[in-house]
Simulated scan of single mutants.
Amino acid sequence: MTACAIEPSAGHGNDGTPRAGCAITADGAYAARLAGRGEARYPERWTLDGPEPYAVPLPGNQPEEADTEVQPMGDGRVLIHRRAAGRHVFTLLYPTGPGTGELPLGAVECPDGGTRLKLLPPAPGGERAYAVAVGPRSTDVWLVAGGDFGPEHLAEVPGRCSGGVWLDRTARLLALDREVGGRTKTVVVDLERGGEVSPLLQIAAGSDDRLLLADPESGLLVIRSDAPSPGEGQLGWGVLGSTLPVRFPECLRLPDCAVTPFAIQPGQTLTPERCAVALRVEGALGRWVGVWRPAERQVHHLPAPDGWLAGAGLWTAQGVLRLPYATAETPCGVAALTPPPLVEAAPGPEPREPLAEQPASEPPPPAAPRPVPLQQAPLGRRVTN
């Protein structure tokens, strides 16, 4: 998201996508990040819904490890996930006088060295927090904050899962990218039906299909799949419950750049093609912000503020993109970017890159697999908003 960020890289997740520089609640009221550098890291909470953003440091009794996770809760407390000798310990932090108050929530035991546990994105409502523990053959979903008796095991999903996208406003339907038999397909876990699993994305039999973002109001889904070109992941979009196939716009293929969607504009009920999608673009010249709408056939490239917490941001319903940043002069800031207004593309087929010339004696290359409409998945028929 940043063209000239001074913030160090936030690293990459288990699926290879870059981690955001901070986590933001679903309603955009609070953010949390691990501030500091080297051996002087500490949690920090940002308040974003006031007249001016401000940060509150929440240091503990000792510096935090670089892989410690933090997540803001809807009431302003911060959940922290620490690792210690095969145990994953969860605690709620809050400011108290000159120090930091801590409410222990309990721990999840992962004695198997092959098991990885990570927090899922902030859940709608902000009252609960969830995590997934990825083992050699299955993935466990845990409620780690907001329960009655500490961490609670909710579901076991066969296969190794990555990603994690909420599909509704009640934190019931969780989409995970599940790897089985060497292929990755997105499935949905119903947390109110004992972890019942149903397929969501199965574009082609031999493709790897991942869900990156979803907007419950419009139904817009942003995915990455190698169905159009085996071995090369491409960004595409579809609509939950639609009869149309997934589409892969050529404008989202940026040569020599890594493109990661990180936020969808809310409030566009029944008009998913008008939703603005924010993209983190990384190339040889640095990081910057891309903005794309399904109704357009272009990406708008915008500079990000210095010190951008790369990959973090949220849209207002009015189409303003808010990006958190931190510099020496402004340790807690939010920049507002307004992309150009929507200009809908003229009707007609999507332009495609020309094929390379082939010798007359050779047949043309085979057509790309036709994406399967999302409504053929059981969830697509059940959830339409």
Score class of each variant (00 low, 15 high):
residue 293 R to M: 05
residue 294 P to A: 07
residue 294 P to V: 04
residue 294 P to E: 13
residue 294 P to H: 12
residue 295 A to F: 08
residue 295 A to Y: 06
residue 295 A to E: 12
residue 296 E to A: 01
residue 297 R to E: 07
residue 297 R to V: 00
residue 297 R to P: 05
residue 298 Q to G: 13
residue 298 Q to V: 14
residue 298 Q to D: 09
residue 299 V to A: 03
residue 299 V to C: 11
residue 299 V to W: 11
residue 299 V to F: 03
residue 300 H to E: 13
residue 300 H to P: 06
residue 300 H to Q: 12
residue 300 H to V: 12
residue 300 H to F: 10
residue 301 H to P: 07
residue 301 H to C: 15
residue 301 H to N: 14
residue 303 P to C: 06
residue 303 P to L: 14
residue 304 A to F: 11
residue 305 P to S: 06
residue 305 P to F: 07
residue 305 P to Y: 09
residue 306 D to Q: 15
residue 307 G to E: 09
residue 307 G to T: 11
residue 307 G to K: 02
residue 307 G to L: 11
residue 307 G to Q: 08
residue 308 W to M: 11
residue 308 W to S: 15
residue 308 W to T: 13
residue 308 W to R: 12
residue 309 L to M: 13
residue 309 L to G: 09
residue 309 L to V: 09
residue 309 L to S: 03
residue 310 A to I: 09
residue 311 G to T: 04
residue 311 G to R: 02
residue 312 A to N: 02
residue 312 A to T: 01
residue 313 G to M: 02
residue 313 G to I: 10
residue 313 G to K: 00
residue 315 W to V: 00
residue 315 W to Q: 01
residue 316 T to M: 07
residue 316 T to K: 01
residue 316 T to H: 00
residue 316 T to D: 02
residue 317 A to I: 03
residue 317 A to R: 14
residue 317 A to G: 11
residue 317 A to S: 14
residue 317 A to H: 06
residue 319 G to E: 05
residue 319 G to C: 05
residue 319 G to L: 05
residue 320 V to D: 02
residue 321 L to C: 03
residue 321 L to H: 05
residue 322 R to G: 10
residue 322 R to D: 03
residue 322 R to C: 14
residue 322 R to L: 15
residue 324 P to H: 06
residue 325 Y to V: 07
residue 325 Y to C: 08
residue 325 Y to L: 04
residue 326 A to P: 03
residue 327 T to W: 06
residue 327 T to K: 02
residue 329 E to T: 15
residue 330 T to F: 08
residue 330 T to K: 15
residue 330 T to R: 14
residue 331 P to W: 06
residue 331 P to V: 02
residue 331 P to I: 04
residue 332 C to Y: 08
residue 333 G to K: 06
residue 333 G to Q: 08
residue 333 G to F: 09
residue 334 V to K: 10
residue 335 A to K: 00
residue 335 A to N: 00
residue 335 A to T: 09
residue 336 A to N: 13
residue 336 A to G: 03
residue 336 A to E: 15
residue 336 A to K: 11
residue 337 L to A: 07
residue 337 L to T: 03
residue 337 L to Y: 02
residue 338 T to E: 13
residue 338 T to L: 13
residue 338 T to P: 04
residue 339 P to A: 02
residue 339 P to V: 01
residue 339 P to C: 04
residue 340 P to I: 04
residue 340 P to L: 07
residue 340 P to Q: 08
residue 341 P to G: 02
residue 344 E to M: 07
residue 344 E to T: 12
residue 344 E to F: 00
residue 344 E to W: 03
residue 345 A to F: 01
residue 345 A to S: 12
residue 346 A to P: 13
residue 347 P to R: 08
residue 347 P to W: 10
residue 347 P to Q: 08
residue 348 G to K: 11
